[in-house]
Amino acid sequence: MDYYLSVATFAGLNVILALSLNLISGFCGQVSLGHAAFYGLGAYAAALCSVAGLPMGVSVAVGMLVAGGFGIVTGFAALRVREDFLAIVTMGVGFLFLGAVRKQAWLGAEMGIAKIPSPLDKWGYAALAIGGAVAVLLLSLHVRRSWMGRAFGAVAQDEDAARSIGVDVSGYKIAAFFIGTAAAGLAGGIYAHMTQLVVPDAFNFVQSVTILAMVVVGGIGSTLGVVAGAVLLTLMPEMFRFINDYKLLVYGGLLLLVMRFSPEGLAGLVHRVTGRRLA
């Protein structure tokens, strides 16, 4: 049972991470190759708070705010640079986070932060992660239906045209980064308490790419597709044990094949087969 609960928890966390990246990259069109940094910021901030004696709820909230705060800073960077430049800058943000954390004694350097208090049992974390995933899912569906979603679409498709019809492009980019990174911080806070240990390597470039893989395999921009992608990529290594030894080979290969043969991901396949667009 414990095993299934922990798989369910990770599936929930991955859904949160993938949906939050989808909000930034899929809805608002701002490529980010450093999403794991915000996951890590949330985890580290929550871990510090909990170790200092704050209750878990407060710690997780602080984690979200810290991640969202740095997200806003990154959003400002996205106002200066676009597209390929932005992709590399966000990748740089990821490396900067890692390289800074690795050197800070007060963050435990390479050893990270251990002995984080863990007030819940396995059921509790699974419920929390899945509850969080459902909340972010509902938020995504709502954003898509609201005027914010349409304005995001305008920003993603043509920034200059969006400006000339009165859309505050900068405001929307920053909003997208704030919402998306704060949600990633939520995942980080839950993760830190569940595992009771955070180390820098859990938030490296490969982790960023893994989140991105979930988004593109599901179909960038499609909420339901991205949920499916996240669940699928979480379960696959569990279902086929042998995959675990070749996890990166499979992830990398899958990214490559999806981009090469069906760049719209699972959502694109559904569209082609049924003629219907997923939300």
Partner: peptide, 27 residues
Amino acid sequence: IYRPILDKPPFVALVASIGLLIAMEDG
């Protein structure tokens, strides 16, 4: 890899490229 997806949005080739890199590193 690249030639068939040149007309897709720019992130497509970039993600494909990252995928190849990660897979080959494991290879």
